[in-house]
């Protein structure tokens, strides 16, 4: 009995030792910060309080009364609505084209994927130039149509469209790769069988391709939605959330609250809200859509 117990222990110790290196880093940089964030969200921890102190749900109450929070949340929802379906649809369309393209297949794929591999900061600067009023690339083009003076990033109504457009440009190529992999997993015989039956391309897409790509769509949907809440770098370079918070998004607002206003208690409360929203959306997608998806 004792011997058996010791042997079991030994196996367990081995397992824990093998897990230890990654476990240390996970605890230090993931689990502990998560826990600390949740705790801190119930504390007042700003520049006015040298020692953080427990203030119950005050941070959450203040947040709900904060107009900027609601503005940022609405912005984020519009941003998600603008980017997620469009970039997914475009990614799928590009994948369908890249999968079919007979000539220059490699070139088409590289061209589509290129925006994804360019560093975020470089992308932001390129688009900053494109959107620059008067001498930016877009202004030059718009001049031909007589609208040369448009200020894309400085205008409250235009700025969100400008950001949405840029993000679609960046994300679609990334999603295309997933769809391309998904398409290549579909047996050619299925298409041949459909063509023997005389199915039109749209029928084939609707009844064969799209249903079989649903696992990919599900995955891409979650990634796209998470990304739409994650945008910070472009905002730092291009708009800083302005003008008048018109392009401010939740994560950038958290960043500002934590590192510009140094209100870490409020930033923690905002973070908890964001994580809860993302979890909720992922859960709805996963448990709602998942039943309709065929996995091989």
């Amino acid at each position: 009995m004792g011997l058996e117990h010791r042997a079991k222990w030994r196996i367990n110790i081995y397992a824990w030792l093998l897990l230890l290196p990654s476990l240390i880093f996970l605890v230090l940089f993931t689990f502990y910060p998560v826990l600390q964030t949740v705790i801190l969200s119930f504390y007042q921890a700003d520049l006015g309080s040298p020692e953080p102190f427990f203030n119950g749900g005050d941070n959450y109450r203040i947040m709900l009364e904060d107009d900027v929070f609601w503005k940022v949340l609405t912005n984020n929802l519009w941003f998600a609505l603008g980017t997620v379906p469009t970039s997914i649809a475009l990614g799928l369309a590009m994948a369908l084209f890249a999968n079919k393209a007979l000539r220059g297949k490699g070139f088409v794929r590289t061209a589509y994927f290129y925006p994804t591999v360019v560093p975020m900061i470089a992308v932001a600067n390129i688009w900053l130039f494109i959107y620059t009023p008067e001498y930016g690339a877009l202004s030059h083009v718009m001049e031909w149509f007589g609208h040369g003076g448009m200020n894309w990033l400085g205008d409250r109504t235009n700025v969100m469209f400008a950001m949405i457009f840029m993000v679609i440009w960046k994300e679609a190529g990334y999603f295309m790769i997933f769809y391309l992999a998904g398409l290549q997993n579909i047996s050619k015989e299925l298409y041949e069988s459909a063509s023997m039956d005389g199915a039109k391309p749209w029928t084939v897409f609707r009844r064969v391709t799209f249903p079989l790509l649903m696992p990919t769509t599900m995955f891409v949907l979650i990634i796209a939605f998470t990304n739409s809440f994650k945008l910070v770098d472009h905002l730092v370079i291009m708009t800083k959330g302005g003008p008048d918070n018109a392009s401010n998004l939740l994560l950038y607002y958290i960043y500002e609250t934590a590192f510009s206003f140094w209100d870490q208690g409020m930033a923690s409360a905002l973070t908890v809200v964001m994580v809860v929203i993302l979890l909720l959306v992922a859960a709805i997608q996963f448990f709602g859509l998942d039943k309709k998806i065929h996995y091989n």
Partner: peptide, 18 residues
């Protein structure tokens, strides 16, 4: 193919998995 009055059984059966 659809105009040739032909049906075909494929090696891997080509059944739609979904």
């Amino acid at each position: 193919p659809s105009g040739r009055s032909i049906s075909m059984v494929f090696q891997n059966y080509a059944l739609y998995p979904h």
